[in-house]
Simulated scan of single mutants.
Amino acid sequence: MPNTWLPPADYIATLPRATAYACLYFTDTGGRPFQLRATYSTELWQWPGGNMDPGETPWQTAVRECHEETGIVFEGAPRLIGTHFVSARGEEWPANHIGFIFDGGVLTDEQLAGVVLDPDEHSEFRLRSLAEWEREMTPASFARLVEIDRARRAGATVYVESGTDL
């Protein structure tokens, strides 16, 4: 029996849905991870980044979103340290969510003093040790932080999956 090929639009309609985000992972000179508190959830801490716009690459998204959310103009080279996959969460988010986490390097005290947050998106930023972050984050979000931090320190790349409790 010969193969029946679907037109591209019909075939694409059969595939799982996914959205994508990209961000930069920074630490300070003491190695403490830098995170932003989302305004829409007092429990959600994030890295500078966001959802991809049409036509953007993950790298372009990470750099653009970092600038919009913090005022930091990142000029380093792209170095992927992690990919993150979140399963579809029913009606709350009816698509898989795929993230690209890039190494933003180390923020100096001067850069940290110059951070300007977008008040519509984030209410504050913090630098904490991993032990301190564990007390402030959901277990799934903290597990992702630990994996990304470990990959960064090792000069490696990691793949992380999360369920619905981010």
Rank of each mutant, 00 (worst) to 15 (best):
H97G: 00
W5D: 06
T70K: 09
Q46D: 09
G99M: 03
S141D: 12
A88V: 03
A88S: 15
R89D: 04
R89H: 01
A156H: 11
P139S: 08
I81C: 09
G71A: 02
G30F: 13
G55R: 07
D109I: 02
A22D: 11
Q111N: 03
Q60W: 08
L145C: 11
G49N: 03
V116P: 06
P48R: 05
P58G: 09
N51C: 04
W45G: 02
T164M: 07
R135E: 15
Y11G: 15
G50N: 01
R144S: 07
D149S: 13
E92W: 04
E69Q: 08
W93F: 10
L112T: 04
T157V: 15
A18I: 03
A18H: 11
T83D: 10
A140L: 02
A20S: 08
R126W: 08
E121Q: 14
R79M: 01
T57N: 14
R144Q: 05
A154V: 13
E75T: 12
T61I: 02
I148H: 02
A156D: 14
A22E: 09
A62N: 07
Q60E: 15
I72F: 06
L80A: 13
V73I: 12
L166P: 00
E91Y: 02
T19G: 08
R128P: 08
E65K: 11
Q35S: 02
E65S: 03
P8F: 12
M137W: 06
R144T: 06
P33H: 10
R153N: 14
D10E: 15
R37E: 11
S162N: 06
E69A: 03
A38W: 05
G105P: 01
R152Y: 10
W93V: 04
